[in-house]
């Protein structure tokens, strides 16, 4: 059982990392971004592009400490983040901003984000094909903990980065002036404007933040599993479930939601076939919707 809980924490941390950017945008712009998963995929593939470019640089080929990936992968985070941020702001300006300015129903923006998702996935398929890719080849080192718990060393890295990202975004939102303005915008966009806050610039900043988190999630997800064009899309449903559990716009809620889902999914395998894991996540989500529709930390 302890073993399953540890695996659940790993899975939950990955879900949490993927869902912070999603809940942030949901809280601030009301958009339930269906392209979020495919933006994660783009982040992962952009890093792949740079990893292969860096493969000619000898000293970047050394593995980072005990992990499976090399310094090239670590360095590739930077261009992945830059391009992911640029892409997010580009989509905002060409799709969501015009829709918001015409006062479109939130479902219209949601449908538009489905279109964006397909375009991004189509591009990934066209450029990289349907086959699987890996950042680095070779064995993935394992670590053996007491109680027969086996973890990949990479997973420890992922858990640390996920929690650090949650903590950093949480601190930013509660302490930094910009973070407070983003929360103000989520609360009441018109009052934010009246107070002199340039709301469009704030929304661009929010996409910048989301784009950064998306790229980090994408590369880490790529390290954890492998790169394939559907990776982000398939990942999307648990992310939706996590942010609904956590409550609209809540960073700590996304972490709590991710952990609950991760642990519940893994623990359920003690009784159910592992293929039922996603269904367990949905049933928890639906129960939450019925009994606590504002989420764990949702505002009353």
């Amino acid at each position: 059982m302890l073993e399953l809980i540890v695996y659940g924490v790993v899975l939950g941390s990955i879900i949490a990392l993927g869902s912070i950017g999603l809940t942030l945008i949901w809280g601030i712009t009301d958009l339930f971004n269906c392209a979020h998963g495919d933006q994660i995929t783009v982040g992962a593939y952009i890093a792949l592009l740079f990893v292969s470019l860096f493969s000619r640089i000898g000293f970047l080929q050394a593995k980072v400490g005990p992990f499976s990936f090399n310094w090239g992968v670590l360095l590739a985070f930077i261009p992945a983040i830059i391009i992911s941020v640029g892409l997010a702001i580009f989509i905002e300006h060409w799709v969501y901003k015009p829709l918001r300015n015409t006062g479109a129903h939130f479902i219209t923006s949601f449908i538009a984000s489905v279109g964006v998702a397909w375009v991004l996935r189509g591009l990934i398929y066209m450029i990289w094909g349907a086959e699987f890719h890996f950042y680095t080849s070779g064995l993935r080192p394992m670590i053996f903990l007491p109680q027969g718990i086996k973890l990949r060393v990479d997973e420890i890295f992922i858990v640390i980065v996920a929690w650090a990202a949650v903590a950093a975004v949480y601190l930013f939102m509660s302490k930094a002036k910009m973070g407070k303005a983003l929360r103000a915008l989520a609360d009441n966009p018109e009052l934010a404007r009246i107070s002199g806050i340039n709301t469009q610039r704030m929304i661009d900043w929010a996409w910048g933040l989301a784009g950064t988190l998306i790229a980090i999630a994408g590369v880490l997800y790529g390290i954890e599993t492998q790169l394939r064009p559907e990776m982000g899309w398939i990942f999307l449903l648990p992310l939706f479930a996590a942010i609904i559990l956590g409550g609209k716009g809540s960073i700590t809620g996304a972490l709590a939601g991710g952990l609950i889902l991760g642990i519940a999914q893994q623990v359920s395998t003690a009784w159910l076939s592992p293929t039922y894991k996603p269904a367990v996540a949905f049933i928890i989500m639906i129960l939450f919707l019925l009994f606590r529709p504002k989420g764990i930390f949702g505002k009353g």
Binding site: V95, I111, A112, G115, V116, W118, G122, M126, A130
Partner: peptide
């Protein structure tokens, strides 16, 4: 050839975005 079929994702996605924007 093997990748070409995926262009339909791009076509339908673009069409959807354009219709939502121009003909809501």
């Amino acid at each position: 050839q093997t990748r070409a079929p995926f262009i339909r994702y791009i076509l339908i996605g673009l069409l959807l975005v354009v219709v939502v924007l121009k003909r809501p």
